[in-house]
Amino acid sequence: MSTIAPVSLKRRSFIYRLLAAEGAQFGEINGGAVPLHFGAGREVELAAARRLALADLSVLPHVGFKGKGTVEWLTAQGLTIGPDSNKAYRQAGGELAARLAPTEIFLIDSLAGTGALIGRLGSAWKWAESAPRPAQGYPTPRQDSHAWFMVAGEFAPEMFAKICGVDLRRDRFAEGAIAQTSMAKMSAIVIRADRQGRDGRVNAAYHVLADIASAEYLWSCLMDAAAEFDGRPVGLLALQDLEQ
């Protein structure tokens, strides 16, 4: 993946200007530009990802399904979805199926961003020709309604405590837990999704999904809250390095 300009692609993160100003070097995934690194050096960004770092994954594939029959249909498509709401279920390809409600799933791709599963589901879901139609839920345009950030590092819970009233500390907010709550006075979905290294080291990480139209606002709030802990933006490579 060579460095590209975000405006050379049609799909654009709402915060690409902020990222570029921080020195982001972009690569193409899913028809959009995602920051690969910020030029600080691989070790520096990896260290930041272990301490406290923010990453913008907004152009990576993510989609929603909701309505009657959602879980049954997705299960029939090969997804593994457990019974509890507000819990994220990991799929074979590393995707997370976040069950927001009994009949609502927010599906986010793995950090590889291949879009394999999401693409397959996109093709599989079709309106039946005529009524009566089977109950199979309905796709929702989460790719474009929600910006997608990852907050990684051991200081993440402390940083969240400055902008979010839900206790997200690791001994109180389990792996896979979801909080649909208010963050910096806007609605947001937080999913705990630790990155496990090959050496067995567990690195704290959380997905944050929130209104795309407030992406610049939320990113700025997160950067402000992270400054106390020397938090900084990192690229996709640093997050992938956490799993090396």
Binding site: S85, N86, A101, G165, V166, A179, Q180, T181, S182
Partner: peptide
């Protein structure tokens, strides 16, 4: 659905 939360939510 979401458990105990501040009333401001």
């Amino acid at each position: 659905l979401n458990g105990p939360r501040n009333i401001s939510e």
